[in-house]
């Protein structure tokens, strides 16, 4: 199968500000990609490019189409939740369902209604009557009832409390995973999506800092709790990050064999969050 997304040399400028500089990446079918970066790193610009919502330079194919032309054709096979709370406030829940049923061939009304039954949202409510968390639940239920090849989620849980965030990702994983749909999630709350992901893309200041699969990660990065007597020795392998934890020194190494590092202390794969911090501070 060909890639769902094929991006080569994406660039985007707002005046003097480079939102994207020569960004290239692929997204394979069925993968769940975390697009992770600090605020202003270019996450939203990247996702908007994929969705045909913004102009850019470079080559980009999404499901074989150029998103700059015919966004509405692309939206038959791609759906997105662009941020929290973009559902129009005047819209009634049942009308939202009617609308999507009327415009989207891939929408399964029964499924949407079944998903909504699991929430406290009633069909006659208007979006303005729902809490922020409930709006997100509604949006997710609507989107999950649409059969598409690519789902894009841009900071889908920003500003929600921990209960909603947890249940959001649980639902996403349980109800969506076996679809074969590829998912791209952008967030800066790395911990919550770490277990979901099959691929990682780190982006900072408009550039891709890291792009790999979760399976490749252990082979590339190791975190070692270095005993005090080994610190000097370990530093020679130029760790990309080093910090104190409970009187010990934790170091993250890139492309240094784990067997080798075993001499300095206990070796394990760094968490995505720690790796993120390491990568961001390095530059």
């Amino acid at each position: 199968m060909t890639a769902v997304v094929n991006a080569r040399g994406l660039s985007k400028r707002y005046g003097d500000f480079h939102a994207l500089r020569d960004v290239s990446f692929d997204i394979e079918p069925g993968s769940i990609v975390g697009l992770i970066g600090p605020n202003g790193a270019g996450k939203t610009t990247t996702l908007k490019s994929l969705l045909g919502l913004t102009r850019f330079d470079g080559e980009l194919e999404v499901l074989g189409m150029d998103p700059r032309h015919g966004r509405h054709e692309l939206m038959k096979r791609v759906c997105f939740i662009a941020d929290v709370g973009v559902l129009p406030r005047w819209l009634k829940v049942k009308h939202a369902i009617d609308y999507i049923e009327g415009v989207h061939e891939g929408f399964d009304r029964d499924k949407a209604e079944a998903l909504l039954l699991k929430t406290k949202i009633s069909p006659s409510q208007k979006v303005r009557q729902l809490s922020k968390g409930m709006v997100t639940q509604l949006h997710l239920a609507l989107v999950m009832a649409i059969e598409v090849d690519l789902l894009v989620l841009d900071e889908p849980t920003l500003g929600l409390d921990i209960l909603y965030r947890k249940s959001f990702y649980e639902r996403l994983l349980n109800d969506y995973f076996d679809h074969g749909t590829s998912i791209v999630i952008s967030t800066h709350q790395v911990e919550e999506i770490e277990s979901l992901l099959t691929h990682l893309i780190f982006i900072d200041e408009g550039e891709i800092v890291l792009s790999c699969s979760m399976e490749e990660l252990p082979g590339m990065y190791s975190e070692v709790l270095v005993s005090p007597e080994n610190i000097e020795q370990a530093l020679k392998y130029s760790p990309i990050h080093s910090r104190e934890i409970l009187g010990k020194r934790s170091m993250i190494f890139e492309d240094v064999s784990a067997d080798m590092l075993g001499n300095f202390g206990e070796v394990h794969t760094p968490s995505v969050a720690d790796l993120f911090v390491a990568k961001m501070q390095k530059g």
């Binding site: 509405h72 054709e73 662009a82 973009v86 129009p88």
Partner: peptide
């Protein structure tokens, strides 16, 4: 209005052409 309240991002996630 939908650009101001950002709900355009919802409408544009649907396969409806801008002409329509």
């Amino acid at each position: 209005e939908d650009r101001k309240d950002r709900s355009i991002l919802f409408w544009k996630s649907m396969p409806v052409s801008d002409t329509s």
